[in-house]
Design a protein around this nucleic acid. Sequence first.
DNA 1: AAGGGCAACAACCGCCACCTT
DNA 2: CAAGGTGGCGGTTGTTGCCCT
Length: 259
Amino acid sequence: MMARTPCVDKNGLRKGPWSKEEDDKLRAYISRYGHWNWRELPKFAGVSRCGKSCRLRWMNYLRPNIKHGNFTKEEEDLIIIMHNKIGNKWAKIAAELPGRSDNEIKNYWHTHLKKRVKSDQTDPKNMHRETKNQTESSDIGGHDEVEALCASSSSLELSFTNTHEYPNETNSSPLTPSSSSASVELTSSKFMVHDSLIMSSGDLIQTYSDEYDDGNFWTDPFFEDLDVVNNVFMAPSDSDEFIWSTMDLYSEYHSQFMM
DNA sequence: AAGGGCAACAACCGCCACCTT
DNA sequence: CAAGGTGGCGGTTGTTGCCCT
Protein backbone atom coordinates (compact mmCIF):
# COMPACT_ATOMS: atom_id res chain seq x y z
CA MET A 1 0.00 0.00 0.00
CA MET A 2 1.34 3.41 -0.85
CA ALA A 3 0.85 5.25 2.36
CA ARG A 4 2.57 6.56 5.37
CA THR A 5 3.83 4.31 8.07
CA PRO A 6 1.54 4.16 11.08
CA CYS A 7 2.41 6.44 13.96
CA VAL A 8 0.83 7.96 17.01
CA ASP A 9 0.42 11.66 17.68
CA LYS A 10 0.80 13.50 20.98
CA ASN A 11 -2.68 12.55 22.05
CA GLY A 12 -2.18 8.88 21.42
CA LEU A 13 -4.30 8.98 18.30
CA ARG A 14 -3.12 6.87 15.42
CA LYS A 15 -2.04 8.41 12.14
CA GLY A 16 -1.06 6.92 8.83
CA PRO A 17 -2.60 4.03 6.94
CA TRP A 18 -5.76 2.40 8.19
CA SER A 19 -5.78 -1.22 9.26
CA LYS A 20 -8.53 -3.59 8.24
CA GLU A 21 -9.68 -3.77 11.83
CA GLU A 22 -10.05 0.00 12.00
CA ASP A 23 -11.91 0.01 8.70
CA ASP A 24 -14.24 -2.69 9.94
CA LYS A 25 -14.98 -0.86 13.16
CA LEU A 26 -15.66 2.44 11.44
CA ARG A 27 -17.76 0.85 8.72
CA ALA A 28 -19.75 -1.16 11.20
CA TYR A 29 -20.42 1.81 13.40
CA ILE A 30 -21.45 4.24 10.67
CA SER A 31 -23.52 1.64 8.90
CA ARG A 32 -25.40 1.13 12.10
CA TYR A 33 -25.62 4.61 13.56
CA GLY A 34 -24.61 7.04 10.87
CA HIS A 35 -22.05 9.83 11.22
CA TRP A 36 -23.84 11.95 13.76
CA ASN A 37 -20.75 13.82 14.94
CA TRP A 38 -17.32 13.21 13.45
CA ARG A 39 -15.45 14.44 16.47
CA GLU A 40 -17.13 12.13 18.94
CA LEU A 41 -17.64 9.28 16.55
CA PRO A 42 -14.20 7.62 16.71
CA LYS A 43 -14.52 7.13 20.46
CA PHE A 44 -17.83 5.36 20.15
CA ALA A 45 -16.69 3.41 17.12
CA GLY A 46 -13.69 2.20 19.11
CA VAL A 47 -11.17 3.73 16.74
CA SER A 48 -8.12 5.60 18.02
CA ARG A 49 -8.24 8.22 15.31
CA CYS A 50 -9.16 11.86 15.16
CA GLY A 51 -12.58 12.66 13.77
CA LYS A 52 -11.16 14.28 10.71
CA SER A 53 -9.23 11.16 9.80
CA CYS A 54 -12.38 9.06 10.24
CA ARG A 55 -14.38 11.38 8.05
CA LEU A 56 -11.77 11.27 5.31
CA ARG A 57 -11.52 7.50 5.45
CA TRP A 58 -15.27 7.13 5.25
CA MET A 59 -15.78 9.65 2.48
CA ASN A 60 -12.94 8.35 0.33
CA TYR A 61 -12.97 4.61 0.90
CA LEU A 62 -15.59 3.12 3.14
CA ARG A 63 -18.72 4.80 1.85
CA PRO A 64 -21.16 2.48 0.12
CA ASN A 65 -20.90 2.47 -3.67
CA ILE A 66 -17.47 4.05 -3.69
CA LYS A 67 -15.46 3.17 -6.78
CA HIS A 68 -11.70 2.96 -7.20
CA GLY A 69 -9.39 3.09 -10.17
CA ASN A 70 -10.19 2.57 -13.83
CA PHE A 71 -11.70 5.90 -14.71
CA THR A 72 -13.77 5.53 -17.85
CA LYS A 73 -13.27 7.70 -20.88
CA GLU A 74 -16.58 9.39 -20.11
CA GLU A 75 -15.46 10.13 -16.57
CA GLU A 76 -12.16 11.52 -17.78
CA ASP A 77 -13.85 13.73 -20.33
CA LEU A 78 -16.32 15.02 -17.79
CA ILE A 79 -13.52 15.85 -15.36
CA ILE A 80 -11.61 17.71 -18.04
CA ILE A 81 -14.65 19.64 -19.21
CA MET A 82 -15.71 20.60 -15.71
CA HIS A 83 -12.18 21.48 -14.65
CA ASN A 84 -11.89 23.66 -17.71
CA LYS A 85 -15.03 25.48 -16.64
CA ILE A 86 -14.87 25.66 -12.86
CA GLY A 87 -11.24 24.96 -12.00
CA ASN A 88 -10.13 23.02 -8.95
CA LYS A 89 -13.61 22.62 -7.51
CA TRP A 90 -13.05 18.94 -6.85
CA ALA A 91 -16.09 18.51 -4.67
CA LYS A 92 -18.34 19.89 -7.38
CA ILE A 93 -16.69 17.73 -9.99
CA ALA A 94 -16.99 14.70 -7.74
CA ALA A 95 -20.68 15.40 -7.36
CA GLU A 96 -21.07 14.65 -11.06
CA LEU A 97 -19.24 11.36 -10.82
CA PRO A 98 -21.20 8.96 -8.64
CA GLY A 99 -18.92 6.80 -6.54
CA ARG A 100 -15.87 8.99 -7.00
CA SER A 101 -14.47 11.04 -4.16
CA ASP A 102 -13.07 14.51 -4.58
CA ASN A 103 -9.75 13.26 -3.29
CA GLU A 104 -9.52 10.54 -5.88
CA ILE A 105 -10.49 12.89 -8.68
CA LYS A 106 -7.96 15.41 -7.47
CA ASN A 107 -5.23 12.76 -7.41
CA TYR A 108 -6.26 11.46 -10.80
CA TRP A 109 -6.16 14.93 -12.24
CA HIS A 110 -2.67 15.60 -10.95
CA THR A 111 -1.26 12.23 -11.99
CA HIS A 112 -3.01 11.59 -15.29
CA LEU A 113 -5.32 14.20 -16.72
CA LYS A 114 -3.22 17.30 -16.19
CA LYS A 115 -0.49 15.83 -18.34
CA ARG A 116 -2.96 14.63 -20.92
CA VAL A 117 -4.59 18.03 -21.21
CA LYS A 118 -1.22 19.70 -21.45
CA SER A 119 0.00 17.40 -24.20
CA ASP A 120 -3.30 17.73 -26.03
CA GLN A 121 -2.98 21.49 -26.00
CA THR A 122 0.62 21.53 -27.18
CA ASP A 123 0.16 18.87 -29.83
CA PRO A 124 -0.46 20.65 -33.17
CA LYS A 125 -2.52 17.66 -34.28
CA ASN A 126 -4.96 18.49 -31.53
CA MET A 127 -5.34 22.16 -32.35
CA HIS A 128 -8.43 21.47 -34.38
CA ARG A 129 -9.77 19.15 -31.72
CA GLU A 130 -9.09 21.70 -29.03
CA THR A 131 -11.06 24.34 -30.87
CA LYS A 132 -13.79 21.84 -31.44
CA ASN A 133 -13.78 20.91 -27.78
CA GLN A 134 -14.07 24.50 -26.77
CA THR A 135 -17.07 24.84 -29.00
CA GLU A 136 -18.52 21.67 -27.59
CA SER A 137 -17.75 22.87 -24.13
CA SER A 138 -19.97 25.81 -24.58
CA ASP A 139 -22.67 23.46 -25.73
CA ILE A 140 -22.19 20.52 -23.41
CA GLY A 141 -20.32 21.91 -20.47
CA GLY A 142 -21.09 25.59 -20.67
CA HIS A 143 -21.13 27.63 -17.53
CA ASP A 144 -24.87 27.58 -17.07
CA GLU A 145 -25.05 23.91 -17.76
CA VAL A 146 -22.26 23.09 -15.34
CA GLU A 147 -23.99 25.15 -12.69
CA ALA A 148 -27.19 23.33 -13.40
CA LEU A 149 -25.35 20.05 -13.21
CA CYS A 150 -23.88 21.02 -9.88
CA ALA A 151 -27.22 22.15 -8.56
CA SER A 152 -28.86 18.93 -9.56
CA SER A 153 -26.25 16.96 -7.69
CA SER A 154 -27.39 18.03 -4.25
CA SER A 155 -29.17 14.74 -3.72
CA LEU A 156 -26.10 12.69 -4.38
CA GLU A 157 -25.34 11.90 -0.76
CA LEU A 158 -28.95 10.95 -0.20
CA SER A 159 -28.81 8.58 -3.12
CA PHE A 160 -25.91 6.84 -1.46
CA THR A 161 -27.82 6.36 1.74
CA ASN A 162 -30.79 5.17 -0.19
CA THR A 163 -28.93 2.40 -1.86
CA HIS A 164 -26.98 1.31 1.16
CA GLU A 165 -28.04 -1.82 2.92
CA TYR A 166 -27.88 -1.56 6.65
CA PRO A 167 -26.68 -4.83 8.10
CA ASN A 168 -28.77 -4.45 11.22
CA GLU A 169 -31.78 -2.79 9.81
CA THR A 170 -34.06 -4.94 11.87
CA ASN A 171 -32.61 -3.25 14.92
CA SER A 172 -34.34 -0.08 14.00
CA SER A 173 -33.81 2.71 16.46
CA PRO A 174 -33.85 6.49 16.55
CA LEU A 175 -30.23 6.29 15.60
CA THR A 176 -30.62 3.94 12.73
CA PRO A 177 -32.74 4.47 9.67
CA SER A 178 -36.02 2.63 9.95
CA SER A 179 -36.09 2.23 6.20
CA SER A 180 -33.63 2.50 3.39
CA SER A 181 -35.02 5.88 2.47
CA ALA A 182 -34.08 7.43 5.77
CA SER A 183 -31.04 9.61 5.97
CA VAL A 184 -28.15 8.51 8.11
CA GLU A 185 -27.41 12.10 8.97
CA LEU A 186 -28.18 12.82 12.59
CA THR A 187 -27.96 16.13 14.28
CA SER A 188 -25.71 16.47 17.27
CA SER A 189 -28.57 17.86 19.30
CA LYS A 190 -30.34 14.54 19.06
CA PHE A 191 -27.34 13.01 20.68
CA MET A 192 -27.04 15.34 23.63
CA VAL A 193 -28.25 12.70 26.01
CA HIS A 194 -25.81 10.17 24.67
CA ASP A 195 -22.95 10.81 27.07
CA SER A 196 -25.02 11.01 30.18
CA LEU A 197 -26.70 7.74 29.40
CA ILE A 198 -23.46 5.95 28.83
CA MET A 199 -22.01 7.38 31.98
CA SER A 200 -24.97 6.29 34.01
CA SER A 201 -24.89 2.93 32.36
CA GLY A 202 -22.72 1.16 34.87
CA ASP A 203 -20.55 4.19 35.59
CA LEU A 204 -18.26 3.11 32.82
CA ILE A 205 -16.91 6.55 32.42
CA GLN A 206 -16.44 8.22 35.74
CA THR A 207 -15.69 11.68 34.67
CA TYR A 208 -16.43 13.54 31.56
CA SER A 209 -15.25 17.07 31.64
CA ASP A 210 -16.54 19.86 29.47
CA GLU A 211 -13.21 21.52 29.95
CA TYR A 212 -10.98 19.57 27.68
CA ASP A 213 -7.91 21.28 26.27
CA ASP A 214 -8.52 24.08 23.84
CA GLY A 215 -6.22 22.55 21.27
CA ASN A 216 -7.10 21.41 17.81
CA PHE A 217 -10.72 20.44 17.42
CA TRP A 218 -10.02 17.59 15.03
CA THR A 219 -7.10 15.98 16.79
CA ASP A 220 -7.59 16.49 20.50
CA PRO A 221 -9.35 13.78 22.48
CA PHE A 222 -13.02 14.33 23.01
CA PHE A 223 -13.03 12.76 26.46
CA GLU A 224 -10.85 13.99 29.22
CA ASP A 225 -9.22 10.64 29.58
CA LEU A 226 -8.85 8.85 26.33
CA ASP A 227 -7.51 5.75 28.02
CA VAL A 228 -10.75 5.34 29.88
CA VAL A 229 -12.60 5.39 26.63
CA ASN A 230 -10.26 3.05 24.84
CA ASN A 231 -9.67 0.58 27.62
CA VAL A 232 -12.91 0.54 29.50
CA PHE A 233 -15.84 1.69 27.44
CA MET A 234 -14.45 1.02 24.03
CA ALA A 235 -13.51 -2.55 24.52
CA PRO A 236 -11.46 -4.42 21.91
CA SER A 237 -13.09 -5.95 18.90
CA ASP A 238 -13.98 -9.19 20.66
CA SER A 239 -16.27 -7.16 22.86
CA ASP A 240 -18.02 -5.31 20.08
CA GLU A 241 -21.33 -6.77 21.13
CA PHE A 242 -20.97 -4.89 24.36
CA ILE A 243 -20.60 -1.64 22.47
CA TRP A 244 -23.60 -2.37 20.33
CA SER A 245 -25.69 -3.35 23.29
CA THR A 246 -24.76 -0.14 25.06
CA MET A 247 -25.65 1.86 22.01
CA ASP A 248 -28.92 0.02 21.68
CA LEU A 249 -29.60 0.77 25.31
CA TYR A 250 -29.21 4.40 24.46
CA SER A 251 -31.53 3.98 21.53
CA GLU A 252 -34.21 2.56 23.77
CA TYR A 253 -33.67 5.35 26.23
CA HIS A 254 -33.94 7.88 23.48
CA SER A 255 -37.14 6.50 22.03
CA GLN A 256 -38.68 6.26 25.46
CA PHE A 257 -37.88 9.67 26.81
CA MET A 258 -36.88 11.91 23.97
CA MET A 259 -39.39 11.27 21.24
C1' DA B 1 21.39 -7.01 -9.66
C1' DA B 2 21.37 -2.52 -7.72
C1' DG B 3 19.98 1.91 -6.95
C1' DG B 4 18.30 6.34 -8.29
C1' DG B 5 14.43 8.83 -9.93
C1' DC B 6 9.76 9.21 -10.88
C1' DA B 7 4.78 8.12 -10.56
C1' DA B 8 0.87 7.05 -7.95
C1' DC B 9 -2.07 7.82 -4.30
C1' DA B 10 -3.47 7.58 0.65
C1' DA B 11 -3.50 10.62 4.13
C1' DC B 12 -2.41 14.97 6.54
C1' DC B 13 -2.90 19.88 7.26
C1' DG B 14 -4.63 24.47 7.22
C1' DC B 15 -8.18 27.24 6.17
C1' DC B 16 -12.85 28.68 5.45
C1' DA B 17 -17.94 28.63 5.49
C1' DC B 18 -21.87 27.67 7.88
C1' DC B 19 -24.54 26.87 11.95
C1' DT B 20 -25.68 27.26 16.71
C1' DT B 21 -25.60 29.43 21.06
C1' DC C 1 -23.52 40.53 16.64
C1' DA C 2 -19.74 37.66 18.30
C1' DA C 3 -17.67 33.48 19.42
C1' DG C 4 -17.20 28.77 19.33
C1' DG C 5 -18.21 24.30 17.21
C1' DT C 6 -18.39 21.47 13.22
C1' DG C 7 -18.10 19.92 8.52
C1' DG C 8 -16.01 20.30 4.24
C1' DC C 9 -12.62 21.68 0.74
C1' DG C 10 -8.32 22.05 -1.61
C1' DG C 11 -3.28 22.04 -1.37
C1' DT C 12 0.43 19.41 -0.07
C1' DT C 13 3.24 15.74 1.82
C1' DG C 14 5.20 11.19 2.55
C1' DT C 15 5.66 6.43 1.41
C1' DT C 16 5.92 2.71 -1.68
C1' DG C 17 6.21 0.43 -6.08
C1' DC C 18 7.92 0.49 -10.60
C1' DC C 19 10.88 1.59 -14.33
C1' DC C 20 15.08 2.84 -16.36
C1' DT C 21 19.94 3.08 -16.54
